[in-house]
Computed example of a mutant assay.
Amino acid sequence: MMKEFLEAQGLEYKEVNVQLDAEAARKLVEETGQMGVPQTKVNGQWILGFDPEKLMEYVKK
C-alpha cells in the first residue's frame, strides 16, 4: 500500500527489502528500535506502518 500511495503522489522512493538485506535490517532496528514493515524515512523522520497523513506532513517540511 505504501508503494502504491507514493507512486500515486508522484513521489520518488528507494525500496529496501530488509528480508534480503541483513545489513539494512540491522541499521533499521538500530535507528528505529523496530523491525516491523513498512517503515518509511521522510526528511529524516521515520514513519512506522502505512500512515499517509503523517507521510505527507513530513514531505511538506
Rank of each mutant, 00 (worst) to 15 (best):
Q19V: 12
M35Y: 09
E31A: 12
E7S: 03
N43W: 06
E30Y: 06
K14C: 03
Q34H: 15
K54V: 10
L28I: 14
V29E: 07
N43R: 07
M56D: 00
E12Y: 01
E23S: 13
M56T: 01
L11Q: 10
Q45Y: 13
G49L: 03
Y58A: 01
V16R: 11
D21K: 05
K3W: 01
P52S: 08
G49P: 09
Q19I: 12
A8D: 09
D51V: 15
L55A: 11
G44T: 14
M56P: 00
P52D: 08
L20G: 10
L11Y: 09
K14Q: 12
E15D: 07
K3P: 07
R26Q: 14
V59H: 04
E15K: 04
G44E: 14
E7D: 02
A24W: 13
T40C: 07
K14G: 08
I47C: 01
L55S: 07
N43Y: 02
G33P: 12
E15Y: 10
Y13C: 00
G49C: 07
V16Y: 10
K41N: 07
E57V: 12
D21F: 04
E15F: 04
Q45W: 13
K27V: 14
R26V: 02
Q9E: 13
T32W: 15
E7I: 10
A25G: 15
L11M: 10
Q9K: 15
P38M: 02
A24N: 03
L20A: 06
K41A: 09
E4S: 03
E23F: 03
M1T: 05
Q9D: 06
G44D: 09
N43A: 01
E12P: 00
W46F: 04
M35E: 04
D21T: 06
K14V: 09
F50T: 14
L11C: 08
N17F: 05
L55T: 14
F5I: 11
V37H: 04
Q9W: 02
D21V: 06
E53R: 15
D51P: 11
L11V: 01
K27F: 07
E15G: 00
K61S: 06
M1D: 10
V42T: 01
F5S: 03
V42S: 00
Q45R: 14
W46V: 02
K3V: 04
Q34L: 14
Q34W: 15
L20T: 11
M1R: 03
V59L: 06
L48H: 08
L11R: 14
N43E: 05
V59I: 12
K41C: 13
K27E: 15
E12N: 06
Q39G: 14
T40M: 03
M35A: 11
K61V: 07
Q45N: 09
Q39D: 15
W46C: 03
E23I: 02
Q45S: 05
G33Y: 06
E7P: 05
V18T: 12
K3S: 10
E23W: 02
N43C: 00
Q39R: 05
G33N: 09
